[in-house]
Each structure stands twice: as C-alpha cells, then as structure tokens.
Design a protein around this nucleic acid. Structure first.
Lengths: 253, 253
DNA sequence: CGTTTGTTTGAGCAACATCAATAATTGTGG
DNA sequence: CCACAATTATTGATGTTGCTCAAACAAACG
C-alpha cells in the first residue's frame, strides 16, 4: 500500500511536551523550556513484547524507565525459582527507582503485554536536576511517593484479609485507569490470577474464589481478564473493613 | 557541685564532622567543606522521652530527622485506633522521607526510649543539594535505599512464615547494631512484643511463642527485652527457609 | 489438534489468630 | 520502700482463614 503513510518508530518524534502522560510523569510542574531540556535526554526505544524483560535483577543500572503504553510487572526472584511480585505499572509510572542506590537493579521487570517505555539515563537526569530545582523537587516527590505507596502495601499485607486485599487491588486499578482517561469500572487486567495472588500475598485459588464470590454478590462482573466493577461504594466499604456482605446480602433468588 | 562542668544540650556543639554516625548518615561521601555546609542547616533539639511523638500523621512536614541516639518507631494509625508499625529506627537512620511528596506527614513517629534527633529543614536541604551534586546524589541513594528496604519487607509479609519473619527481624537488628559498633549477638530490643508482632504481621502471642521456641531450640536466649543470639548460622538458615529444627534438633535432654 | 498453561472448584488441613487465664514487670502514690 | 494498679508477657485451648492438594475444565499456542 504505497500511498499509506509509513509510521515507523524512528520517525515518530514523540516529545514530552506532546505526550498525553505529561501530567502524570516527570514533566509535572516543569516550565515548557525545562520540559524541552528533559526531553533532550529521554530515549525512546522500540516496544517490548509480552514476557520480554525490561531489565533483570542484577543488571547494571543506567536508566529509569517510564511506561508509555502497555503494562509491566516488577518482581523479585528468589533462589528457589519462586518470586515476589512487587508491583504492576501503568503508563506514566516510573520504574527502576530502587536501583539508584547500588547502581544495580534489585528487581526484574517484564512486560505484561506489548509495552513502550521512555528511558531516562540517570546520570543525565541527575545533572539536569542539579541545574533545575523544579526537576530535583519533582524527583524527591516521586521517590517519596513511591515510599508512601509501599508503606500502604505493608499495611495491606500485614493487616488486611484476603477480601480487603482484592478489593483494594481492584479499586487501585480503577483509580489509575480513570486518571489515564480510561473507564474506572470496565477494564482488562493484564496479569494472571497467579500474579495477582503473588502480589497480594494470596494463593491463586483464593483469588479465583474471591472473584467468583464478588461476582455472586453483585460487586463485579468478571470474565477472565475483563473486569467490570458494578458497585464501587460497596467495594470501598470492603476496603475499610465494613462487611457489606452481611449488611446487604443481595444474592439473587 | 559547683566545680563540675555543666554540660547542657545548648552548649554541646555537636557537629556532623565529629559525629560518630557520619559514616551512616547524610555526610557519607561529602567533602569536609560540604559537611560543614550541611552542618550549618542542621538543628539539634532536646531529647524526646519514651512515648513522645517526634511527629504525627497529618502534621505539616518541614524537616527530615536523623536519629542520633535512642530509637523510634514509625507507624500509620488507622481510623479504628489500631495501627500498622512501619519501622523501627536506630541512630543514623533518616525518617520523614515519605512526607516530602505532599508536605504532610503520612505516618507518626514516637520515641521508644530517650532519643535524640537532628532536624534537617527540607527546604534548606533541597537548596543545598541543588548546589552540591554529591549531596543530591546521596539523597537519591537514601531514598532509593528506603524503597529497596520496603520491597524486602513486602516479600517478608507476602511470603514468609512466622518463624522466618522473626528470624529476619532479629538478624536485621543484629546487623544494624553491629554497624553501629554494638554487639551483634547481645542487645536490648526497645519495643514491646506487641509492636514486634504488629510490625511483622503476627499476633503478640505468636511472637511470644516463637521466642520461647527459639530459646528451647538453642537459637537464642531471651529475657524480656534482652536478647542474646546464640546461633547466627541457624538463624540465617531459617531466614532462607531451611528448616534447621528438623535437621539438627538440639532440644536439651 | 494435541499440548501446555491458566482458571475454577472442592475437600481437607495447617498455620496462625483469637480467646482466656495467669504470671511477671513496671509504674505510681503513699 | 512497699502496696496496688496497670501494662506486658507467657501459656494453653479452641477457632478460622486461607493454603495445599487434587481434579476438571477452558483457553492459548504451536
């Protein structure tokens, strides 16, 4: 098809200033000039396929990475072949922050689906942030937020029931999709039940049973990866330990 | 006693350059001149007593704090009065990093015993780190390390057995005391069993029973807060999931 | 189209929580 | 310094959540 415009990734001059993720990503709170300077150090490679590693535990650390499309899981592999899933990352989210300290990745990251990322060489970013107080501030904020999110996760794993964990998980994705302009109630989860369970500190079977139960209770509709949240308020109640099942048992018939 | 030298905290001109914690704290990797400049923004207040709050969730964030002596627990209070203990902090450790993002503390911190801290106004630190690349780098490293430590904690809470959790907890303190020049095998834990359990996602009773069992198995000697680790190798085995109990059951008589 | 991988469901079980009682320790006021 | 109250720790008995094991089923893949 000769008259169809060829769009190669090389030609696609995506720039931070045009990027729809700008409000979620590093450019937040930067002046246009500063965005331009940030843009100049960003590298955009070709996309990863499902299952590809963005990096592996032990790899030398050179760059932070921002997901621009698709999704990624980070995990920490154990000697015995098992792993701990550390997080699922959506467009606009920065990964690799844990690797700054010892210049080596302390976890692995793989694409859950076809995924594009921006690469930000950390050396350059450090230099730039030294010259650009607002960028430095943004970096401190991002790192701090990451810490805050992980402490929430500690509470989840330390104190919450299986039910509360899954509800928290689902509403977290709901909010994150919403922020990115997608539906807050109808989405596809790109990870397997196994990975969800691993992340939440639960067995696969428990996750599966909970999905079934939530569906029976009219909280959601689920078919494999496709999830539709039908009752956000009650899901919210569950997160906060309010046992809405007993309070309003709606099991049909 | 008129001829006894009066040592007030006002007069105690402790400086970073003389501080025994310098190798653990922010001054790591700074030139003497730079340490001097850092020193100039650090505030040293009077000590906190056991139970005093250094700050509370919701407080405005102004300063990071470094423990200089004593110990501190950070925790996230829930609506219902319960709490999640997020960490126990020893001299040289920096707290408040999670508050940078929204300029408000997202957790509370209280002294577990008489505790002294250095206060580092964050605005000044930001300015200084902008002018001092090595300090900026150090900050990035510290924040990154915090993230890394929390991901380890996620694995602990997500995957490990009660036994593994307590062993990990004990060896973590062992190493941290050692780094500070104290015994790695003989120390006092300043927190209660309840707080340990809370931190590790276990019930108080489970913690108590485990201490008893570890003692029966000759792994340690414990008398209230006083702990003596008798078999570091086996404790290490436990952490890595090797059931040393069955392998070398040493129950006396 | 068979093979592999992921999901669901059931049955039984184990680890750890909860409840309850006692004991030890610490703090407090006289 | 002692007596009493309050807190903290230990220990035992019982209960429950969620794990493990097992099997059937569905979907994805070459």
């Amino acid at each position: 098809m000769p008259n169809r415009k060829v769009v190669s990734f090389e030609n696609l001059k995506v720039a931070c200033k045009n990027c729809s993720l700008a409000t979620l990503c590093l450019p937040v709170a930067l002046e246009p000039d500063d965005v331009e300077r940030l843009d100049s150090i960003v590298k955009r490679g070709r996309p990863f396929h499902r299952g590809d590693h963005l990096f592996r535990e032990g790899d030398d650390f050179h760059s932070l990475r921002v997901i621009t499309s698709g999704s990624v899981k980070t995990y920490s592999p154990s000697e015995d072949g098992s792993e701990q899933v550390l997080g699922f990352h959506l467009p606009g989210e920065l990964i690799g922050l844990d690797a700054i300290q010892n210049e080596r990745h302390s976890c692995s990251a793989r694409a859950l689906e076809t995924t594009a990322v921006c690469e930000i060489p950390f050396d350059s970013l450090e230099e730039l942030s030294s010259a650009m107080p607002s960028l430095q501030h943004q970096m401190y904020c991002l790192l701090s937020r990451e810490i805050g999110q992980e402490t929430e996760m500690l509470t989840l794993l330390g104190k919450k029931s299986a039910e509360e964990r899954l509800a928290t998980f689902l509403l977290s994705f709901s909010e994150r999709f919403k922020k990115r302009g997608f539906s807050a109630t109808d989405f596809f989860l790109s990870m397997s039940r196994h990975e969800i369970g691993n992340y939440l500190g639960l067995a696969v079977e428990t996750v599966s049973r909970l999905f079934t139960r939530f569906q029976e209770e009219g909280l959601l509709k689920v078919e494999r990866k496709h999830v539709q949240l039908l009752d956000l308020p009650r899901l919210n109640d569950i997160i906060h330990g309010i046992d809405s099942v007993r309070t309003s048992n709606q099991s049909r018939a």
